[in-house]
């Protein structure tokens, strides 16, 4: 179980990275390595070139861009750092809660936000959270820069909207999204496993406990992390309480789910319903996420 051979590159500047990407047909970016390395060890992937971006300057910061109203997260920010960032916690209280489910502290010391978004496991936590928060991703090649809304990021099962000559540079979140509460619930057999299913939701509830806005997404259920606009629509204008949550839960169960050797689509649909309801319960309890 040893990796096949490859050529190793460790660019120090974004320009060099992009030029390498433009030059090679068969290259893989090595970020935190927590998904790529196992696949290389098992020879499931055998790239001709590995481009290690751990040394690239300018990819590992988190900063608030007040002018743009964005919190900008470099693609190489480690999961451990995400959990500890006060700025991120302020803009997005769900992050520490969700990232605590990402693998184990040893893998979070290496794993990155960019790696997680590009690997795009349907059950991964970070794509779900970013989808829920309407993150915008900056993707760059040697010749152009463009932004991708998180809603457009997942093209298909583990297939993000990024070309082989492009790199994910930055993830931007709204700095003050105005949600009054958030909830994240994950169902896995063991702590740190990829979830069988997970659900996250955000609520904006007014003084009279009426839901002004809602965002709901589920992970691990469908081919890609999925927003549930119908369930969201059912909530808006309703009191933030059990009947509305039950209705949203019923809507969540209708998602087109995947099945595998262990769990059927029907079971995942059931979990989607249960977890959405539980996440909404959390979200309605307010913004205090400890």
């Amino acid at each position: 179980m040893k990796s096949a051979g490859f050529r190793y590159h460790d660019p120090q500047r974004i320009d060099d990275l992009l030029s390498l990407l433009g030059r090679f047909e068969d290259a893989k970016i090595l970020a935190g390595g927590q998904s790529l390395m196992p696949m290389m060890n098992m020879r499931f992937v055998q790239p001709e070139h590995v481009i290690d971006i751990n040394g690239v300057q300018g990819l590992d910061g988190i900063h608030a861009d007040a002018a743009a109203g964005k919190l900008r997260i470099g693609a190489m920010v480690r999961q451990k750092t995400l959990m500890q960032s006060a700025a991120l916690r302020a803009a997005c209280p769900m992050v520490p809660q969700a990232v605590a489910h990402v693998g184990h502290f040893q893998t979070r010391a290496r794993g990155t936000i960019g790696g997680s978004l590009c690997h795009l496991d349907p059950a991964a936590e970070l794509p779900l959270v970013m989808l829920l928060h309407d993150a915008v991703l900056t993707v760059q090649s040697a010749t152009e820069v463009h932004q991708v809304d998180m809603a457009d990021w997942a093209l298909a099962y583990m297939l993000p909207a990024i070309s082989p000559d492009e790199a994910l540079i930055e993830v931007a979140l709204p700095l003050a999204p105005g949600w009054t509460g958030s909830g994240f619930v994950e169902f896995a057999r063991r702590h740190g496993d990829f979830a069988i299913a997970s659900a996250g939701c955000l609520l904006d509830v007014d003084d009279r406990n009426i839901i002004r806005r809602a965002a709901i997404a589920v992970g691990g259920v469908a081919q890609v992390p999925t927003r549930l606009p119908e369930a969201e629509a059912l909530l808006v204008g309703q009191p933030a309480s059990a009947p509305a949550f039950a209705a949203a839960s019923d809507a969540a169960r209708k998602i087109d789910a995947l099945s595998d050797a262990y769990y059927t689509a029907a079971y995942r649909q059931r979990l989607a319903g249960v977890l959405v309801e539980r996440a909404l319960g959390q979200a309605s309890k307010g913004t205090d996420h400890g």
């Binding site: 098992m42 057999r189 063991r190 702590h191 740190g192 496993d193 990829f194 050797a261 262990y262």
Partner: peptide, 16 residues
């Protein structure tokens, strides 16, 4: 065989 790694074949862990 379908279960050929430790992500699929679940050994008991400390938390459970």
């Amino acid at each position: 065989p379908v279960s050929t790694n430790f992500g699929e074949y679940l050994l008991p862990t400390a938390t459970e």
